[in-house]
Amino acid sequence: MLKRVAYYPGCSCEGMAIEYDQSVRALCYVLGIELVGIPDWNCCGSTPSHSYDPLLGAALAGRNLAIARSQGLDVVMTPCPSCLKALKTANQVFRERPSEFLDVLGMPFSGDVRAISVLQLLYEEIGPNLIQKAVKFPFKNKKIVPYYGCLLTRPPAFAQFDDPENPVSMDRLIEAAGAAVPDFPHKTECCGAALGITQRDVVMRLTGRILDMARAVGADALAVACPLCQQNLDLRQDQVNRALKENFNLPVLYITQIIGCALGIDRKTLGIEKLAVKTDALFQSA
């Protein structure tokens, strides 16, 4: 099992998704995984850089991997699926166009630093069995549905994690936390992503559909592993209610918060109070 990984929070975890960052750090501390900061880490490049120039995007993300390597680490963990994609792309571009990539990067790069998501860390490195054993406060009589979004498992050849159309890793982790997991057909349907900025009606429709299905299968809450998914489903839930004349009231928690709670970590430490949709009902025993 991995004991020590480089930690790349990305920009969301310093702002909108600060509770994701808090819960990842708290959970890893309890599980005995040392998160090593990447000194002077920089933006992964996100969508604008690779849209402008793929080499620029790859080099921006690659710099973080190179620093991690210089710290003697060979795994970088990030909570954000978009950062994960950028970090993995750096390795891919290095393999395909090594000389151009190194030229832009301007520092040593070995291409052997693996980038993984926090979900991958929990599912593949720690595993549901170990987590289940550590659970002190299981979610009894609660139904929580997992929402994976688009990037964590796709494209399959690139992600190399779980099933692209019907992933189950988060299902197993939620079950380990003691909650029931109803079959959730929309677990990989698009949430609308960044269209919330340019075409909000699309996000209203797509996010509304996911919330509608979650309600239909009787969910008490949703579990997510992506800051953008969380934002659309949680922060915009009020907007969705107004736009669609609905009254959804579904808490949307990060998977790290759910496991953290089950392990007995203080809710304040996990940043639960920062969520837009109130979670009180979820923590009342039925």
Partner: peptide, 9 residues
């Protein structure tokens, strides 16, 4: 093989 169609599920 096509998970999105739900054959078998």
């Amino acid at each position: 093989v096509y998970g999105e169609y739900g054959g078998g599920r």
